[in-house]
């Protein structure tokens, strides 16, 4: 079952590559939150109850509901145009994401001691690298935040693969930090919108030597 969810997660990366609107991205993030909920549920069902509840709450409430709603609020409040405005055509993005997935698949085959968790690795690393790729090819700063959440999702999958034994405290800290960063970034976009009237990366390139 986990495999199916992970494959669907990877498919969501492909649809991210051809998405044209910011709302599509936000919806994909919400979908990924639900998928992570499923993955965490099946992956951690044997561990202790408290951890399970915290993780499930984190995925379903924060990742699937709160963050997408908040991003939606930011987009609407700042009148950000709905188009994502990539630097490269989506067609190229799609090919590159496919190549990233294929490459991570090949790489994880070279590594020998992850037999049990190979699919986690492929999915997590492809999410990480495609997130970095999307980040560098999208013009708006809100898409940078969205890509940051995408990368965080990848890291979440990686942490599921690696340590079911990560202490509670760490989980809480991670949750808190992600939560705060996203909200701070979001509030910050509001401020950027107030001062610069246009939330575009090209506005933010005056500081250089």
């Amino acid at each position: 079952m986990i495999n199916i969810l992970l494959i669907v997660f990877t498919m969501s990366l492909l649809f991210f590559a051809i998405g044209n609107r910011l709302m599509t991205y936000v919806k994909i993030l919400a979908l990924q939150g639900v998928l992570l909920f499923g993955i965490a549920f099946y992956g951690l069902i044997e561990s202790n109850l408290a951890t399970l509840i915290i993780i499930l709450l984190e995925t379903i409430i924060v990742k699937a509901i709160a963050i997408p709603l908040f991003l939606r609020y930011v987009i609407i409040k700042n009148n950000i145009t709905r188009e994502a405005e990539p630097y490269l055509p989506n067609f190229v993005s799609l090919i590159i994401v496919t190549l990233i997935i294929a490459a991570t698949f090949m790489v994880s085959n070279v590594i020998h001691d992850i037999h049990n968790h190979k699919i986690y690795f492929v999915v997590a690393l492809s999410a990480l690298f495609s997130g970095l790729y999307f980040m560098s090819t999208r013009k708006k700063i809100i898409t940078h935040v969205i890509c940051y959440v995408l990368i965080e999702n990848g890291v979440f999958i990686l942490s599921l693969a690696v340590g079911k034994e990560m202490p509670m405290l760490v989980n809480l800290g991670v949750l808190f930090d992600v939560f705060v960063s996203v909200f701070l970034l979001g509030i910050f976009i509001n401020k950027v919108g107030d001062v610069l009237q246009d939330t575009d990366v090209s506005q933010l390139s005056n500081l250089k030597d």
């Binding site: 990480l128 700063i141 940078h144 940051y148 990368i151 965080e152 890291v155 990686l158 942490s159 991670v174 930090d177 960063s181 701070l184 970034l185 910050f188 401020k191 950027v192 001062v195 610069l196 506005q203 933010l204 390139s205 005056n206 500081l207």
Partner: peptide
């Protein structure tokens, strides 16, 4: 709260967040 400090803040939060994701990995 002017344009320059906004740009610096944005870059700082962003680069540091990504870097800390790296540390977590």
């Amino acid at each position: 709260r002017n344009a320059g400090s906004i740009e610096a803040t944005w870059k700082y939060i962003f680069v540091c967040s990504i870097s800390l994701v790296f540390v977590f990995i």
